[in-house]
Simulated assay, not measured.
Amino acid sequence: MIKLIRVDHRLLHGQVAVSWYGYVGANCILIANDQVIKDPIRKASIKMAKPSGSKLVMQNIEHSIESLNSGITDKYNLMIIVESIHDALLLINGMNEKPKVLNIGGTKETDQTRILSPAVNTSITDEEDIKSLIDLNVEVEIQQVPTSPVKTIKVNDLKINRG
């Protein structure tokens, strides 16, 4: 059962490992990312952040979709972490059973982004992807840690709808 799908550009780190993992009652973490599986240094740092006693799986997006759709992950209380809003859209688009909620915890600031919330920076492409997620009936929420307030993103919040 999927307990949480989260966008966090840092993937697995203390905030996720300590706060979210226990809060959602997960026992397995799936890192769905095409780049991290090719990078031994990033893989090693993610493994170090893994909560004690948890199962950690790192797969590319395509293999993650196959695993989720096959039912092999059904035996776990699963927390899925992706690096970007686009990765979340790719993953969710490929899933047979769409989640009800996507949690956005943090995205990188660049010269192409604007601040949507203190830790979430979005480009026009990110906002188009968020609109696509909303169109799939996925509620897109911003929440850094479980104890912080939830901000549900509405289409009116997106710059792409302001012309």
Rank of each mutant, 00 (worst) to 15 (best):
I2A: 04
K3R: 15
K3W: 05
L4S: 01
L4C: 06
R6I: 04
V7F: 14
R10T: 12
R10E: 13
R10W: 12
R10Y: 11
R10A: 12
L12P: 08
H13Q: 14
A17D: 11
V18Q: 10
W20T: 11
W20I: 12
G22Y: 09
G22A: 08
V24R: 04
G25T: 12
A26Y: 00
A26N: 02
C28W: 00
L30V: 01
L30T: 00
L30A: 00
L30P: 00
A32P: 02
A32N: 01
N33S: 13
V36P: 00
V36C: 02
I37M: 07
K38F: 05
D39S: 08
P40T: 09
R42W: 05
R42A: 06
S45Y: 04
S45R: 07
I46M: 10
K47D: 03
K47E: 15
M48R: 07
A49T: 10
A49F: 10
A49L: 08
P51G: 04
K55L: 05
M58Y: 02
N60W: 01
E62Y: 06
H63F: 00
H63C: 00
S64D: 09
S64T: 07
I65P: 04
S67M: 15
I72V: 15
D74E: 15
N77F: 11
I80S: 07
I80E: 07
I81H: 05
I81R: 05
V82K: 12
